[in-house]
Design a binder for these strands. Structure first.
Lengths: 217, 217
DNA sequence: CGGTTAATTGAACGCATTCAACACGAGTGG
DNA sequence: CCACTCGTGTTGAATGCGTTCAATTAACCG
């Protein structure tokens, strides 16, 4: 299977690298094809993961089929850390991707590995902050504000040059609590106002940062 | 100042009591009047709290004045634990209430106090689960579903007999990402269908559990 | 009793959804 | 090279859910 949309892997060699070493020391590398499941909703949460290549998304399905995307995890990010005994959200490979999995018991056993400890704490912090931000967005922001906020968040993860949203419109919509049509319309508007530019449907560049930030509320 | 809506304090003497002892051992008791601030948004997060009496709400204000309520904390609950250096949400007393505050440094120093450790871990788990649940609700549920879910959650915290939502409609609305009018309408509907009963505007009893759970989606 | 705040109800509006049609790109095979 | 298909994204028109604005009722407190 070939990658439809190659990732900008220029983020690979960041502070993540030191952490990756720590993970490699205690964990095992695994690869997942596009749209395959890394762990399921209600699976036992006994592993912790770091993304080495590709992008991972967490999501949850309600009984009647509605989907809410929890978050997206890029190269270097840690995911799968839920304090509970099992996962509330499933994790799926958005691209073909590679991750390192570490057992929780291993993490506990090697407690004291300073790099690992710090990273996990930091990841936990990030996780909660993003959840809180997500709540505010879904609870109190308009469609335009949500899309603007999302583009800013994605662009900030990218060094510079055109940013790459690795996901399709459906994933964006399910993250933002909107429909694909609404997302598409908002993107068209932002392009019409020359605030962002989309050379292709998944690549974009911010043209007017202050305007975009103003719209994000 | 008198309590407008006396709380059902029959929850005080639950598993919380053992934990309260642990908290008392290391912390200090404080009281807050209705609608006063316990800590502010962006305050340094150096303390951890347990509710002893009353109800606490966390909330966040956006630049243009929109408010999102994070959660409500009842007797026995722990709040204020955010992994980051400072708080993203403010905490306010909903009622006149009493809390025990423990410094983070104290928590670390006494690490090993099994009761405390377990309680904090458990609180962290609950916190994250509720955040995730909140995200799903705000992202993918209708107004009726949100209100139904909320009533279920509140009723489940109450032993039995009529449950007490200690907060007003505005607080509910800001938690559910709705307006007070919509909340009011949904409540009227639920009463019309004889699914819940409101003897007073803040006291209610569930009459048809299965129907209510079906509506919560 | 009034006076004040909270909650409910009604009517009109608007934002996002729904349903449907169309456009675009990539891959396939004639 | 073109026709065809399939998946994905965009656009349009109509509907509807929740909001907004405004008025009324209820609850609490002096």
């Amino acid at each position: 299977m070939t990658l439809a949309y190659p990732l900008t892997d220029d983020r690979t060699a960041r502070p993540a690298s030191a952490l990756t070493e720590a993970f490699d020391r205690h964990g095992v590398r695994m690869t997942f094809a596009r749209n395959t499941e890394i762990y399921a909703q209600d699976d036992e949460a006994d592993q912790l993961y770091q993304v080495v290549r590709g992008v991972v998304r967490t999501s949850r399905l309600t009984a009647d089929g509605r989907r809410q995307v929890g978050d997206f995890y890029y190269v270097g990010d840690l995911f799968g850390l839920e304090p509970g005994p099992d996962h509330c959200f499933a994790a799926e490979a958005l691209d073909d991707c590679e991750v390192i999995a570490v057992r929780r018991s291993t993490v506990r056993a090697f407690a004291g590995d300073a790099a690992l400890d710090r990273a996990i704490l930091e990841a936990q912090r990030l996780e909660m902050e993003r959840l809180q931000e997500h709540v505010v967005m879904l609870g109190r922001k308009s469609a335009r504000e949500r899309v603007a906020s999302f583009l800013i968040a994605i662009a900030n993860r990218t060094e510079d040059g055109p940013a790459n949203l690795a996901m399709g419109r459906q994933d964006m919509a399910d993250y933002l609590g909107l429909t694909i049509e609404t997302v598409s319309r908002m993107l068209t508007q932002l392009q019409g106002d020359a605030i962002v530019e989309f050379p292709s449907s998944r690549r974009f560049e911010v043209r007017k940062w202050t305007a975009l930030e103003a719209l994000a509320a």
